[in-house]
Simulated assay, not measured.
Amino acid sequence: MTARHCIVHGRVQGVFYRDWTVAKADELGLAGWVRNRPDGTVEALLEGDADTIARMVAAMHEGPPRAAPTRIDQREVEPQGLDGFTRR
């Protein structure tokens, strides 16, 4: 198990990006959370196997139909052993 902390930049608030992230992470079997940040970005913590996290990050570059992500800052972090994926 591995974990990745992500900050998604671009048009990602007010376009159902968090709800889409929860649904996609559930579909892929990842654990973690997603939340809006005051600066207009979206923050996410993804936990699971490295290949599945890579698939999720690739999908996050597209997001839901009205989103327009411009970049995702990522860093490896220590897994917290989370269960399920939540919207904060």
Score class of each variant (00 low, 15 high):
Met1Ile: 11
Met1Gly: 13
Thr2Cys: 13
Thr2His: 13
Ala3Leu: 07
Arg4Tyr: 04
Cys6Lys: 01
Cys6Gly: 03
Cys6Phe: 06
Val8Leu: 09
Val8Thr: 07
Gly10Leu: 06
Val12Phe: 02
Val12Ala: 08
Gln13Tyr: 12
Gln13Ile: 10
Gln13Lys: 09
Gly14Glu: 06
Val15Trp: 07
Val15Tyr: 10
Val15Glu: 12
Phe16Pro: 00
Arg18Ala: 07
Trp20Glu: 00
Thr21Pro: 00
Val22Glu: 03
Val22Ile: 05
Val22Gly: 00
Ala23Gly: 10
Ala23Lys: 15
Lys24Arg: 15
Lys24Thr: 11
Ala25Leu: 03
Asp26His: 08
Leu28Met: 13
Leu28Asn: 01
Gly29Lys: 09
Ala31Pro: 01
Ala31Thr: 08
Gly32Glu: 04
Gly32Asn: 07
Val34Arg: 06
Val34Gly: 02
Val34Pro: 05
Val34Ala: 11
Arg35Lys: 15
Arg35Phe: 10
Arg35Tyr: 11
Arg35Met: 12
Arg35Trp: 08
Arg35Ser: 14
Arg35Cys: 14
Arg35His: 13
Arg37Asn: 13
Arg37Ile: 07
Asp39Gln: 03
Asp39Lys: 02
Asp39Ile: 05
Val42Glu: 01
Glu43Gln: 13
Glu43Lys: 04
Ala44Tyr: 02
Leu45Arg: 12
Leu45Val: 14
Leu46Trp: 02
Leu46Ser: 03
Glu47Phe: 05
Gly48Ala: 09
Gly48Phe: 05
Gly48Leu: 01
Asp49Tyr: 09
Asp49His: 10
Ala50Met: 11
Asp51Leu: 11
Thr52His: 02
Thr52Glu: 02
Ala54Arg: 03
Ala54Ile: 01
Arg55Ile: 01
Val57His: 05
Val57Cys: 06
Val57Asn: 08
Ala59Gly: 07
Ala59Gln: 10
Ala59Met: 12
Met60Tyr: 13
His61Lys: 15
His61Ile: 08
His61Pro: 10
Glu62Tyr: 13
Gly63Phe: 00
Pro64Leu: 08
Pro65Asp: 11
Arg66Asp: 15
Arg66Trp: 14
Ala68Glu: 15
Ala68Tyr: 14
Pro69Trp: 01
Pro69Leu: 00
Arg71Pro: 06
Asp73Met: 12
Asp73Arg: 15
Asp73Phe: 11
Gln74Thr: 15
Gln74Leu: 14
Gln74Tyr: 11
Arg75Gly: 09
Arg75Lys: 13
Glu76Ala: 14
Glu76Cys: 02
Val77Gln: 06
Val77Leu: 07
Val77Thr: 12
Val77His: 05
Val77Gly: 08
Val77Ala: 08
Glu78His: 09
Pro79Trp: 05
Pro79Arg: 07
Pro79Leu: 07
Gln80Gly: 12
Gln80Val: 05
Gly81Cys: 11
Leu82Asn: 07
Leu82Trp: 04
Leu82Cys: 04
Asp83Pro: 00
Asp83Met: 10
Gly84Cys: 01
Arg87Tyr: 02
Arg87Leu: 06
Arg87Ser: 12
Arg88Leu: 10
Arg88Lys: 12
